[in-house]
Write a protein that binds this DNA or RNA. Structure first.
Length: 579
RNA sequence: GCGCCUGUAGCUCAGCUGGAUAGAGCAACUGCCUUCUAAGCAGUGGGUCAGGAGUUCGAAUCUCUUCAGGCGCGCCA
């Protein structure tokens, strides 16, 4: 029906006196036909007259009355009204209005999918936490968000590849390795342990696992020889000493620890129902000392193109183009590359893989980093508009009304795994996604477990479970009853109208969620739909209706259930059939 | 100092590519379980959308500004 209206509107607009192509295109781009926000405004609404009025400097109400007459004239609608400041409200014939039920029961899990993305190739890089310890609750939010937008973009017609960038090279990994060795050798070295080493329990656990396969021979004297006071310098010196004292063990422990931690991260993500198509190792970019490595070739290219230059013994990238406050170092004066240099090479690699769009999901503390990456994309001959950086703000956890402390210093923190064990993966995902990603989130653990209406997660699940149970009872009582929506279609039963109206909005919600990269829109939609379901359920006793009505109602409620299920699936949450 | 995010009912938040009377839940007060799951429903009260100025036929929504809070600003990663 929307197509019919769309066609009529275009006809109407081109018939307006003195309209030129430019204005026409502007109107066509801006106006919308939407499901009305309330049934008393009819089924469909368009704002086209107000858009046209502002562009053409005309009177919106006059346009509305003219368009209203045109639409009424074609006889395809039960009623057309011009209302308010210039809206057109359209009431469909009942058969058209109720056709959504049939559509959903036919399309099932495909209902809501679209071709909005037109088959573009999108890469989403998210989580990418350093493999130096378990994922914590901050990472969980990025994981839930990246995975959800992946599902939503996929459902709206894009090809999505989800990737985790593993920082398996560099100083952090050296510190990890040193931490494991020091814990392992603690008896021989009088429990010497630098302040800046990693202290978590998992460090000792890794040590215990590797203990059987390795013999370490360190003594405190040679290890702590010429150790500086400064904590940063201290850890670096310890690393250097460990490497020179026993490089064989160093490499062994390093490889083992890295493998252990990456495995544990994969496990955590797995129980969180987040899966990646690709794990990209920073180490695969190679080393600056290797002539042909990706990191060397990307820096060489930047130099050759005059984008990178030498100053004060370091190699810098000119980042002026993106408005960054200063140029950034790629290679330090000591010859080592920066983290940024790896990232430049990594993004060059991404570009070469031919994505139409790159989405990076980063912790909000990285926002100062955006401009330099944008600049590097331009410097590499790509376009910075290809990159969309979505920042995810930190989540504060609250338990028993108190903020849960998350200090990584002491090595004690609330991990993602702890959270999942506490409230379950689905509830955790739900609450992570319940607010826009770039805003601070207060995550109330007690609420997530509570059994009140305030807990929207269960409120929505409850709606789903109620329908499932009703369907089962209906099938048990009337095993031979077929599918039939006649009594709803013919208006002999109209108690479900609000539900029908709401489920017909769903495809628009998914599209809006995809184009704005905001999964939380789906959550609020599902809450509203569930509210209508609970209200209907309370006021109407389905199983005491006539068989004719029951058949139609069950069809209608099945489509509501389908929509709830589809919506939850886009968020990576499994619907519950029983509670 | 610069950058990003935020300020909507007592509390937690929706609504923000401008549109029809600003919405939920909680808390307070009233009702509804001998019938399909009360983890539910119905109702009442509660708002200068932080303050100010501007753009517009129309601003919670856009611009500027003030105030308040959070975070970030390395040749760290």
């Amino acid at each position: 029906m929307i197509e019919v209206i769309d066609k009529e509107i275009k006809k109407f607009l081109s018939s307006i006196d003195n309209i030129n192509k430019e204005n026409l295109d502007a109107i066509l781009q801006k106006f919308s036909i939407t499901i009305s926000d309330n049934l008393n405004k009819g089924h469909l609404t368009t704002n086209v007259c107000m858009i046209a009025a502002s562009i053409l400097k005309a009177n919106p109400n006059e346009l509305a009355i003219n368009l209203k007459n045109k639409l009424q004239g074609i006889g395809a609608f039960e009623d057309v009204q011009a209302a308010g400041p210039g809206f057109i409200n359209i009431t469909l014939y009942r058969k058209d209005f109720t056709s959504t039920i049939k559509t959903i029961n036919e399309e099932k899990e495909s209902y809501g999918k679209s071709n909005l993305g037109k088959g573009q190739k999108i890469q989403i890089e998210f989580v990418s936490a350093n493999p130096t310890g378990p994922l914590h609750v901050g990472h969980g939010r990025g994981a839930a968000y990246g995975d959800a937008i992946g599902r939503i973009l996929q459902a709206t017609g894009s090809f999505v590849e989800k990737e985790y960038y593993v920082n398996d090279a560099g100083r952090q990994i050296d510190i990890l390795t040193a931490s494991v060795i020091l814990k392992l050798a603690k008896k021989d070295i009088n429990n010497y342990f630098p302040e800046n080493a990693y202290k978590g329990k998992y460090i000792e656990e890794i040590g215990t696992k590797i203990n059987k396969t390795i013999k370490l021979k360190y003594d405190v004297k040679s290890l702590t020889k010429s150790i500086p006071k400064d904590p940063e310098e201290e850890i670096d010196q310890v690393i250097a000493n460990l490497k020179s004292l026993d490089n064989e063990s160093w490499v062994l422990v390093k490889d083992f620890s890295l493998k252990e931690i990456v495995e544990s991260i994969k496990n955590d993500l797995n129980i969180f129902n987040v899966d990646f198509d690709n794990w990209f190792n920073e180490s695969s970019l190679g080393d600056i000392n290797q002539e042909s490595s990706e990191i060397s070739s990307s820096i060489n290219k930047l130099k050759a193109d005059g984008q990178a230059y030498e100053k004060d013994g370091a190699i810098w990238l000119n980042t002026d183009i993106s408005g960054d406050d200063k140029h950034r170092v790629l290679i330090r004066d000591n010859g080592r590359t920066t983290y940024f240099a790896s990232d430049v090479a990594y993004h060059k690699n991404k570009i070469e893989r031919g994505f139409d769009k790159l989405i990076n999901v980063w912790g909000a503390d990285h926002h100062g980093y955006i401009k330099r990456i944008e600049a590097s994309l331009e410097a590499l001959g790509s376009n910075r508009n290809k990159l969309i950086v979505k920042l995810v703000q930190f989540a504060n956890l609250f338990k028993d009304g108190e903020k849960v402390k998350m200090s990584t210093r002491s090595g004690e923190f609330f991990t993602l795994k702890d959270l999942i064990e506490d409230i379950g993966a689905d509830a955790a995902r739900f609450y992570y996604l319940s607010k826009q990603a770039d805003q601070h989130l207060d995550f109330d653990l007690d609420l997530a477990k509570s059994d009140s209406k305030e807990n929207i997660f269960y409120y929505i699940q409850y709606a789903h479970a109620r329908i499932v149970s009703l369907e089962e009872k209906f099938v048990a009582n009337y095993p031979s009853a077929g599918k039939d929506v006649k009594s709803i279609e013919s208006n002999s039963y109209n108690e479900c109208d609000k539900l029908i109206h709401e489920i017909s909005r769903y495809p628009d919600v998914v599209k809006k969620s995809a184009s704005s990269l905001q999964p939380h829109l789906i959550i609020y939609y599902l809450r509203d739909l569930s509210q209508l379901l609970h209200s209907y359920y309370n006021d109407n006793h389905v199983l005491s209706e006539s068989e004719e009505n029951m058949k139609a109602i069950v069809q209608c409620l099945s489509s509501v259930r389908q929509v709830i299920s589809n919506g939850l699936n886009l968020l990576g949450i499994s619907p519950m059939n029983k509670m």
